[in-house]
Computed example of a mutant assay.
Amino acid sequence: MLNSLDLEGRPEDTRIVVAMSGGVDSSVVAGLLKREGYDVVGVTLQLYDHGEAIHRKGACCAGQDIHDARDVAARLGIPHYVLDYESRFREAVIDRFAESYIAGETPVPCVACNQTVKFSDLLDTARNLGAQALATGHYVRSRLVNGHRAMYRPVDLDRDQSYFLFATTQDQLDFLRFPLGGLTKPETRAIARDLGLEVADKHDSQDICFVPQGKYADVIEKLKPEAAAAGDIVHVDGRVLGRHAGIIHFTVGQRKGLGVATGEPLFVIRLDAASRQVVVGPREALITHRLMLRDLNWIGGTSLDAEVDSGRMVFAKVRSSRPPQAAMIVRQDGRIAVELLDGEQGIAPGQACVLYDGPGDKARVLGGGFIEATASLGTSLAAE
């Protein structure tokens, strides 16, 4: 007989580790599982110096959030541990983020954090604590399909976090549980109030936790002072329009703050780290139709090679804030690429491309990868 988490045994005989960030979502997960009778253990990760971040609004995994997680655990009557993952987080997430930006990419550090620190290191810790599963407050759903768990988009698509979880392996997914996938955010907050949790109305974190006020360049210059190397701002037609103080100050699709004027709206089309060039041009030059992916992770339940050979139609999400759009998985030069049927603007190397079997809330996450190169109609990936 399976319990509500699809595990053998009674809830009281089933230990579940809950990753508690100090926010309302993970707190409600702990509360719901405790109320069902599970043997719940809360674990909070200290990811960077909480002394520096204790008064920072919109951050997570540091300072006030650690205190909030501890208070919630006390309220629920569950054991709670704080683990120092600062060095691991810096190595696996912060340093990689800086290196990616210096290379002219637009990284997604939340994916790297889930991929390494949370769903690798923390998952091992949960197993060492004798847990049968690790539960988180992510808004995604999972269920058993042919003996393994499959990941799906949540009921509340405004809260969909599947974009940040595409790199989850099948082994990790089988051990993870996402109790909030069938709830909306207002319902989650209502449960928090019912449980008497003070975090019920706590604001959600907005910025990347180690980037205050979204100032990426400030963080990168602090970590890598040599990254702010000047270079040319070049039009796609080859004209040199001006100078810049470092490509780390620009992102693909950016329009404001370019520091040049030609009488036409200009956008950042691409960043060339080798030549330190910021390439700009008209909006239409931003349109991308084909993406080459690296570090591809496939959790679609079938053979990726078979899907590619059959010309599998999928839906691709190239930014967390944009809906999935119709696409096709193709093979190019022995590697996997994705063709966007309608094209998309402002796609940059380093971003994630996540693949689904449909566009709506019942869509299954098939996997995804990081964008290595892009191309528009009539050009090759190598040319970009």
Rank of each mutant, 00 (worst) to 15 (best):
A316T: 13
Q277T: 05
G350Y: 01
D232F: 10
M328F: 14
R283W: 08
A316Y: 10
R276E: 09
L266S: 00
G343L: 03
G263H: 04
A316Q: 12
D237W: 06
R276H: 11
Q254C: 04
R331G: 11
T288V: 10
A337H: 15
F250K: 03
M292I: 13
G343K: 02
P324N: 04
S303H: 06
P349F: 03
I287R: 14
I269Q: 06
Q254V: 04
F267S: 00
A326G: 12
R283N: 07
V236G: 07
T302V: 09
G311N: 06
L304D: 10
H289K: 14
R276K: 14
R331W: 13
L271N: 05
V234W: 06
V318K: 05
V236F: 10
H289V: 10
A326C: 08
D237S: 11
K256W: 15
G259F: 00
C353D: 09
A274L: 12
R270G: 03
Q345T: 13
A316C: 12
Q325I: 15
G300R: 07
D232E: 11
H289Q: 11
D272T: 02
I287A: 15
L296N: 02
I247A: 04
G242S: 08
T251S: 14
I347T: 07
A352M: 13
P282T: 00
L241W: 10
H289P: 09
Q351W: 00
E344G: 03
Q325C: 11
S321G: 15
P323Q: 03
G343N: 04
V260Y: 07
I329E: 09
G281M: 05
E307W: 14
G311S: 01
F267L: 01
T251D: 12
R290N: 05
I247S: 02
V252N: 11
A326K: 07
P349L: 00
R312A: 12
H249V: 03
P265V: 04
S320M: 15
R276I: 09
F315N: 01
Q332P: 12
V280R: 00
Q325F: 13
I247Q: 05
G311I: 09
R276P: 12
L241T: 04
W298V: 12
L286Q: 02
D295A: 12
V268G: 04
R243F: 10
R322C: 14
P282R: 03
A306W: 13
D342L: 13
L258Q: 02
F250Y: 11
A261C: 15
R312Q: 08
N297P: 15
R243G: 14
W298H: 13
I329Y: 01
R255Q: 13
L271A: 06
Q332S: 14
A245W: 10
K317H: 00
V308W: 14
D237T: 04
Q277P: 06
C353K: 07
V330C: 13
L258C: 01
E264Q: 14
R335N: 15
V330N: 12
S303F: 07
A285P: 03
R255V: 12
P324C: 02
I299W: 12
I248E: 00
D295V: 05
G257W: 07
L296P: 02
P265I: 00
V314R: 01
R335Q: 15
D309H: 06
G350I: 02
